[in-house]
């Protein structure tokens, strides 16, 4: 049974991996390259910020072509990992506890995945284009990023638990219970120490880049959830046709 779930997660991950790999190849690679060019043009004033290496470096340990190719592969593996861990393992264990039914469960799990892996850490460490020097050192940022992932996971877990257990007191109460942990999460992020940055690229580049990254990661989760929901629906309708010979047919498409 677990195997079936893992395989389904892997398939969803493969679909999202192809999409993300293409996205890195066609959008992220050129955009990051462009931002690096801009950062290079602007020079770096009194750069004394932490150990951030952007800007000052620019002798990469590998060729640009390698970075581009490995980054595409990284995107594919990223989506595969998210697919297997979230929709293989987590969905197997949590399916009985996730609120909703059918597709809703897939999308809720994807939302929780997004909050855990990206959303929560971004509250403290928003996505930055190349050319942004950060005051926090790498080790500290890794610790914060990891810590916020755990906090995001906890918030999602508590939200789901609260919703399920408050459900019988009515939907508004249950929704309020589900929202509360996320308010705490945002509160924790606001209280976290500030990470001053020194930006060597125009502010619009930073804003545009962030929008692109948010879109990109949200897209990964939407594709994962859609693929997973579709696979699940297909399996269930196949199982239904096999068990009952009452002429159950796949929902007939209304248009060609």
């Amino acid at each position: 049974m677990l195997q079936q779930y893992l395989l389904r997660g892997l398939k969803a991950g493969l679909v999202a991996g192809l999409v993300l790999g293409l996205f890195v190849a066609l959008v992220a690679n050129p955009v990051v390259g462009m931002a690096e060019g801009l950062a290079g043009d602007h020079g770096h004033g009194a750069a004394n910020a932490g150990d951030g290496h952007h800007g000052a470096e620019h002798e990469s340990a590998v060729s640009t072509a390698t970075t581009k190719a490995v980054s595409v592969l990284g995107g594919v593996f990223w989506a595969l990992l998210l697919g297997v861990v979230t929709f293989g393992v987590a969905f197997y264990f949590l399916e009985p506890a996730i609120p909703g039914a059918g597709d809703t469960q897939s999308y809720l799990l994807a939302a929780a995945g997004f909050v855990t892996v990206s959303g929560a850490p971004w509250l403290v460490l928003p996505p930055q284009p190349p050319g942004v020097e950060q005051a926090f050192g790498t080790d500290l940022r890794i610790a914060i990023y990891g810590g916020m992932m755990v906090a995001g996971l906890l918030a999602c877990g508590i939200a789901g638990y609260a919703y399920t257990h408050l459900r019988e007191r009515g939907r508004p109460v249950a929704l309020a219970g589900a929202v509360a942990p996320f308010c705490l999460l945002v509160g924790a992020a606001v209280l976290a120490p500030a990470n001053p940055v020194e930006v060597a690229v125009p502010e619009t580049v930073v804003t545009g880049f962030r929008a692109l990254v948010i879109f990109n990661q949200a897209m990964v989760w939407v594709v994962l959830a859609s693929a997973h929901a579709w696979l699940l629906r297909r399996e269930r309708s196949t199982a239904a046709t096999e068990t009952s010979n009452t002429g159950y047919a796949e929902p007939t498409p209304t248009a060609d």
Binding site: S60, V72, G74, G75, S118, P130, R141, R210
Partner: peptide, 22 residues
Amino acid sequence: FFQEPLMHDSLHNFRHGAGITC
């Protein structure tokens, strides 16, 4: 999170694109 220079620089574009600022 892996910081070894070869790996880090190879994954540079991916990490920026995924908003991993670590």
